[in-house]
């Protein structure tokens, strides 16, 4: 065998090993979460509020809080993100759209903790307290550029012939977009929105000083609210084994939510894209 072939075989093996390593790390992490999480999981744990060490307690308020924050974030982030995405896909040809596209992409990479600092100065300081509203605004801001990009990509997949057909029938452009293009792209936009929700459901840093956290059930927007991620963070850094075990169980709940969204999106979109 020539040395060139040896190098070829070597490199092929190496790249395959890299892929294997990546998957192995994933399996290790998910497997460990499942193993540690299951042992502390119970129905009581899912509906209880946190209690002092030794008395059990659960994450019911954190689950509710996370759902509340995600709902708020969706209300803020989805309409804005979809609208901006529609603008970029349907009218986005000039320099202005180029700038919006670039800034939106760049914003995706800005650390979420910076968004937290921004929302702290924008919402928390004037309101003089941490609140669910502030947490929802922070998560919503993080969602916007993500939704904008997926919406634009999905609209671009709609064949031009659909638009031309509708225009040829005499429909004005706004009817073409809302009545023909958006419905055609709706499944794609919905999956993009689900992925955006999955992404912000794991955010912790922007919630530390906006939603803050709470030991009680709370549905009021002007009050601090618990979330799964902040709860995991606090329990992980505590010195108690019992709270560590609860952190793993809460992680299992959070990962289940995220994985279900990711895998179902994958299964739903496998054929089309």
């Amino acid at each position: 065998m020539s040395s060139r072939r040896v190098v070829n075989a070597l490199m092929s093996t190496l790249t395959a090993a890299c892929a294997l390593l990546g998957v192995a790390v994933l399996v290790l992490i998910l497997g460990y979460i499942a193993w540690r999480g299951v042992s502390s999981l119970s129905l009581q744990f899912l509906i209880d509020t946190p209690k002092p060490v030794g008395e059990g307690g659960g994450i019911g308020n954190a689950i509710l809080g996370t759902l509340l924050l995600l709902a708020l974030a969706s209300v803020i982030g989805l309409p804005l993100g979809v609208a901006a995405g529609v603008y970029l896909a349907e009218f986005g040809r000039g320099w202005f759209a180029g700038v919006v596209r670039f800034v939106s992409e760049t914003l995706t990479g800005v650390p979420s903790i910076v968004t937290g600092v921004f929302v702290y100065t924008l919402v928390v300081l004037p309101m003089r307290q941490f609140s669910a509203l502030a947490g929802g605004v922070a998560l919503g801001l993080i969602m916007i550029p993500v939704v904008t990009r997926t919406t634009e990509e999905m609209l671009r997949l709609v064949p031009a012939s659909l638009r031309e057909g509708a225009l040829a029938l005499g429909a004005p452009q706004w009817r073409v977009t809302t009545g023909v293009v958006l419905p055609a792209a709706a499944p794609g936009i919905a999956t993009g929105a689900m992925l955006a929700v999955a992404r912000v459901s794991g955010e912790t840093a922007p919630l530390l000083f906006t939603a803050f956290g709470s030991r009680f059930f709370n549905v009021y927007l002007d009050q601090p609210v618990a979330s799964l991620t902040v709860q995991i963070f606090n329990y992980a850094l505590s010195p108690y084994d019992e709270w560590h075990a609860q952190a793993w169980a809460a992680t299992l709940v959070l990962m289940t939510l995220i994985l279900v969204i990711n895998v179902s999106v994958r299964l739903l979109t496998r054929r089309k894209f």
Binding site: G202, E203, I232
Partner: peptide
């Protein structure tokens, strides 16, 4: 494989920390 590797990006930061 691409999907599995992308799942690594779906794991939240706080979970990596734990």
């Amino acid at each position: 494989l691409a999907f599995l590797v992308e799942l690594l990006a779906a794991i939240p930061s706080v979970v990596y920390g734990l």
